[in-house]
Amino acid sequence: SAEDNLGPLPENWEMAYTENGEVYFIDHNTKTTSWLDPRCLNKQQK
């Protein structure tokens, strides 16, 4: 699965689903949400 390739979410991040079944990500560090997987963003920065 995609999660196996990317590994676990960063600390204090949570994956959630909208009512429509779309995946989004919650950053409890900054109390924000994102459509972008933080694991993908980390890979792009390196």
Rank of each mutant, 00 (worst) to 15 (best):
W35Q: 02
L36Y: 12
A2V: 10
P10T: 02
C40V: 15
T33A: 04
F25C: 00
T18Y: 03
G7H: 08
K46C: 05
R39F: 00
T33Y: 01
C40Y: 09
T18Q: 06
N5S: 14
K43S: 14
D37G: 02
S34K: 02
E19N: 12
L6E: 09
S34Q: 05
V23G: 09
N12T: 09
S1P: 02
Y17A: 13
N42K: 13
Y17E: 15
L36H: 12
N29M: 07
T18W: 06
D37W: 01
K46T: 13
A2I: 10
K46Q: 04
A16I: 05
P10M: 03
N12S: 08
V23F: 05
Y24K: 02
A16P: 00
I26T: 05
E11K: 12
K31L: 08
L36E: 08
R39S: 03
P10K: 02
K46H: 15
D37V: 02
T18C: 09
Y24P: 01
N42G: 14
Q45N: 15
R39W: 02
T18I: 03
R39C: 02
I26K: 05
K31E: 07
F25Q: 00
C40K: 15
K43H: 14
I26F: 03
L36S: 08
D27H: 08
K31T: 05
P8Q: 10
A2L: 14
C40R: 14
W13F: 11
M15R: 10
A16V: 06
P38E: 00
N5R: 12
Y24W: 03
E19R: 10
T32M: 09
D27A: 01
P38I: 01
H28R: 09
N12C: 06
T33C: 09
Q44G: 14
W13V: 09
L6F: 06
E22Y: 03
F25L: 01
D37C: 01
G7K: 08
E19H: 11
Q44S: 13
F25P: 01
Q44K: 15
W35E: 03
N12F: 07
L6M: 13
E22G: 05
Q44E: 15
E19I: 10
Q44N: 15
A2D: 06
F25A: 01
D4T: 10
F25Y: 15
C40L: 14
I26A: 03
N29F: 07
S34W: 00
N42P: 12
P10I: 00
E14H: 06
